[in-house]
């Protein structure tokens, strides 16, 4: 990657601007949010592929990985993650399928849950990527840069839902130490970054609404309005909500007529790859940040201590010199 002089200038000025203006430079949460009303999803009965899934696959088809074969295993291990022969798989998240529809049966009722990245407010995948390959955009979405992703899959480990998916045999690691470090590129939903930047809706949202004779499952819009709408429905329709508190808040709000405790348990019982735990702690906030405050405070105390110590020792020195003169 090239760090141009311009980027360096952007870095320098953003850092100083951030110090000057604090949190006002950009809203923390981002501009948009999505409401996913599960009471309206029937899993696209009668369609061979759910429309949201199909729309995502079509819209993003030219961004899917095309690995070079043969693929090297992750030395010293003998394994590697390759989904390129399973491009047609639509019932789970893969590098070629960024949204899928889960099905659970609760008290005789079928519930369909479209699953994709939640686009968290303080996303661990972004904050923890050691290569800066993930970013949180002003629109609120978290985006993987496939040109710098090394494929170590740390984002998947630190994501409470383990959303990002890895494909080996593509990416920058092939140019560096392909045998010893890196493992491909991670892929996941980026909330249709190019569309939403232009003010358009994500492809899956439009596709779902286009189904004849049905209300859309998704409502995409300005975050504050979506949150307000979701809470209104919780109040007025007695629905349960998921995503507003989990992981410290996200920009994806699920609404359901059955509680998420039950949904979570049903997914667990089915041994699903992707679960929906109800209590999701954001460990950056709960574990790191208290220590982070101590780091900053001790830095400040150390500065004051050093200043005092320097002046006291100077005074001593001076007095000692004067003593000698006497």
């Amino acid at each position: 990657m090239k760090i141009s002089r311009r980027n360096f200038f952007i870095l320098a000025s953003t850092i100083s601007a951030s110090f000057l203006f604090g949190n006002k430079v950009e809203a923390v949460e981002g501009k948009y949010a999505t409401l996913v009303d599960l009471t309206k999803c029937d899993g696209c009965k009668g369609e061979s592929v759910p429309l949201c899934v199909k729309a995502c696959r079509d819209y993003n088809a030219n961004r899917f990985p095309n690995p070079e074969k043969p693929i090297l295993p992750y030395w010293p291990r003998k394994t590697y993650e390759d989904w390129s022969d399973k491009r047609d798989k639509i019932d789970t998240l893969t590098p070629y399928n960024w949204i899928f529809v889960q099905k659970v049966n609760i008290q005789g009722k079928e519930i369909f849950i479209p699953r994709r990245c939640m686009h968290c407010d303080n996303p661990p995948c972004v904050r923890e990527c050691p290569f800066g390959a993930l970013t949180k955009q002003p629109e609120g979405n978290s985006v993987i840069n496939d040109k710098i992703c090394f494929g170590g899959a740390k984002c998947r480990d630190v994501c409470p839902w383990h959303i990002p998916q890895r494909q080996a045999g593509v990416g920058i690691y092939l140019q560096i130490l392909p045998k010893y470090a890196g493992g491909g590129v991670m892929y996941k939903c980026d909330l249709c970054k190019d569309k939403i930047r232009k003010g358009e809706e994500p492809a899956c949202v439009t596709a779902c609404r286009s189904r004849s004779g049905k209300e859309g499952v998704f409502t995409f819009g300005i975050r504050d309005e979506i949150y307000a709408l979701a809470y209104k429905k919780v109040r007025e329709e007695g629905l349960f909500i998921y995503g507003d508190k989990q992981n410290g808040g996200t920009s994806t709000l699920y609404l359901s007529a059955v509680s998420f405790e039950l949904i979570s348990k049903a997914l667990q019982d089915k041994k699903e790859r992707f679960l929906m735990p109800v209590h999701v702690e954001n460990k950056i906030i709960s574990k790191f940040n208290p220590i982070g405050k101590i780091v900053l405070a001790s830095g400040a105390i150390s500065m004051i201590g050093a200043t005092l110590a320097a002046f006291l020792s100077k005074k001593e020195k001076k007095e000692a010199c004067e003593d000698e003169k006497d």
Binding site: L11, T14, G22, F131, G132, K136, Q137, G292
Partner: peptide, 27 residues
């Protein structure tokens, strides 16, 4: 490192590029 601590605290909000570049420099 201090910038990383500050952005995790969300006491500073860096632009996406700035956050990336800071991370890469640290690593």
């Amino acid at each position: 490192g201090i910038i990383k601590v500050l952005k995790n605290l969300e006491w500073i909000i860096l632009s996406p590029q700035a956050e990336s570049i800071n991370t890469i420099i640290h690593t």
